[in-house]
Design a protein around this nucleic acid. Structure first.
Lengths: 200, 200
DNA sequence: CCTACCGATCGGTAGG
DNA sequence: CCTACCGATCGGTAGG
């Protein structure tokens, strides 16, 4: 919410990134022209090249600064709940609340996979990995089965991706009424998959 | 394996689709030009328009005919195993064996989401849905917890997508040695999530 | 099914 | 940071 004062140069650069981000989400990378980016950023075409070496440099900046984890991580870190169960359920709830039902927040990664063959992934990963480590601790519990922690985190993240992608694939067409509960089912199945069976 | 005899027109059309399929997987839709498709299909640019109304018509045909489920469904249907456990494990194994570790077979769907906003999804779904119904039966078991069957299928499919997408996202960078076992972990967690706890 | 062409638009740059 | 421009390439078509 804090609006840091940026120099004019920084502000223009920021405007270009935001314009590009919106257009990429909407149309993908190749279908978005430098002219569209310039127009949406309120600048002349030539002006872009004072801030970026070229089109791909814009994408690189965008994916580093607008990557999904930048949205997800703060949400997940702010979630309350001392045990695994409530953490998983609360995170599921919080994510759906903040991100809605659309997989928009995943589209940048899809663009990266489809239009760049994943070649920025390594750089991205270096940036992300240290920051998701704190989340690993929240799975630390003797209720959890013996599963390598990294694998735990991977399946956890994967479960959310799976929810959103299948939402896009068949959410509107089938069972629109089940939508509200769907994320609950994903979280529930994940939890049962990860926890030791309760003796009841 | 059977090579049906096609008329020359059909063969050309098929060659165009296959050329486009390869190029789309490699570059995405927008970055692929009609000239590239023509060249790879061994035809002149103008010739394409005897078979397709335009570029998007090619994509529509490709996604209908080369959609991932066309590869996955036969594999899953051929899997042996009478109980849920062996079905899930064998399917996981068979898919990795046939599709490898790369998410290539998912790229068409990503292109559809990124470059078309998912607008062909409904038509696609009508084609796919009836054919995956038989798979639902293989989850019919009193070992399975009370979960709506459609949701079961959705999480099952989602688990595979999650595996492949996280594989692309961090498979090469981290834990390349764990790769072989990773799918096993996904299947294992899914199974525990879906089955009633065993009294042991 | 090909040749030759259309207008439009692309990413990028020179020069100021 | 803008104006005016570059060569290249785009999807598509006319005509044969």
């Amino acid at each position: 919410m804090t609006e840091p004062i940026l120099s004019k140069g920084k502000r223009t650069r920021q405007a270009i990134e935001e314009a590009a981000y919106e257009l990429f989400l909407d149309q993908g990378y190749s279908a978005t022209s430098m002219r569209q980016i310039a127009e949406q950023a309120g600048i002349a075409l030539g002006g872009i090249y004072n801030h970026f070496a070229g089109k791909e440099a814009i994408f690189t900046a965008v994916i580093l600064n607008q990557h999904p984890y930048k949205q997800i991580l703060p949400i997940a870190l702010a979630v309350e709940g001392d045990d695994v169960e409530s953490f998983v359920y609360n995170t599921a709830q919080a994510l759906v609340d903040e991100l809605g039902y659309s997989p928009d927040f995943l589209k940048l990664v899809f663009i990266e996979v489809v239009e760049f063959g994943g070649k920025h992934m390594a750089a991205l990963f270096q940036d992300v990995f240290p920051q998701i480590l704190p989340l690993l601790e929240r799975f630390q519990s003797d209720k959890v089965r013996a599963i390598p922690p990294v694998m735990l985190m991977r399946v956890f993240i994967g479960t959310f991706i799976a929810y959103y992608l299948t939402e896009e694939m068949l959410g509107d067409v089938v069972m629109p009424d089940l939508q509200e509960e769907a994320m609950g089912h994903f979280a529930d199945i994940f939890l049962h998959g990860v926890l030791k069976p309760k003796e009841q």
